[in-house]
Amino acid sequence: MIEVRGLTKRYGEKIAVSDLSFTVQPGIVTGFLGPNGSGKSTTMRMIIGLDRPTAGSVTVDGRRYRDFAAPLTEVGALLEARAVHTGRSAFNHLLALAQTHGIPRRRVDEVIDLVGLAEVARKRAGGFSLGMGQRLGIASALLADPSTFILDEPVNGLDPEGIRWIRNLLKALAAEGRTVFVSSHLMSEMALTAEHLIVIGRGRLIADTSVEEFVRRASGTVVRVRTPQASKLRDLLISADVTVTSVVSDTLEVTGLPSERIGEAAAGAGVTLYELTPQQASLEEAFMDLTRDAVEFHGAASAGAAAALEGQV
């Protein structure tokens, strides 16, 4: 279990993480979601003591990371930037880490096999592809068989096979009762892996929710209706709680009414319907909605497009 309480990190004038509080439970995969630059990596670095919090605290199973007698057996971490000397072989890299804790050499070979690096383990890590580098990082996280895993963007640079492998690995680790905390800036990836979500933006907590709940909230109440009598139906449906927008001349998008009620209203008034479809807002859209105000760097083009759309409506 990871407990983050009032965590704040300031670099000079810039606040990277601001009064962040959440708990990561064991036994499930918890996704840590936020746009680039939202403070995910900083938070993760503070969990294992690489960065010192300006205020607040973070504990793993009730203790500060630096107070553990065998830190690697408590937390296995894969951080975003590579943490490997490019001139050293994967085997020697892992051996040096293992030796700090007196972990036997046999275990080094085990984790190398486990992540599928056996063939390149004696080669210099500097020549590794991004995917191989990620596998080596995961091997070092697994090395001491820890009860908590912290992985920063683990699927970066992996091929589809590798991505599926990580997904299954994380789920298997959680199923064994471990705490698994995984960051990503991709909602779709998290939806497939995580059961719980911590969403942050600009260093602040935006949501602390189950994936199920997040999906439910996200899947919209928007219903698409196609009818030759669009203006008649619009007048019929519109009210304080219901908004109706028109995308194409014969198509309406209704927010605030379930499809059943729209169908009934149309039947009652004798309006012909060609189509009546509840819209599943994609998770990606829901995530974008949620973090829109918290995104650090808006693309100029997308900002322009958004303004143009607003103009039309």
């Binding site: 804790h101 007196g102 036997p104 486990l114 697994l142 690995l169 064994e176």
Partner: peptide, 26 residues
């Protein structure tokens, strides 16, 4: 993922002493 469990149980009986940081090991 049977390999994970296999690997996990392997450490529990392959470690001669409990893994622990010491200055000599560092």
């Amino acid at each position: 993922m049977t390999t994970i469990t296999a690997a996990a149980s392997a450490t529990s009986h392959s470690a001669p002493g409990r893994p622990r940081l010491t200055q000599a090991r560092i």
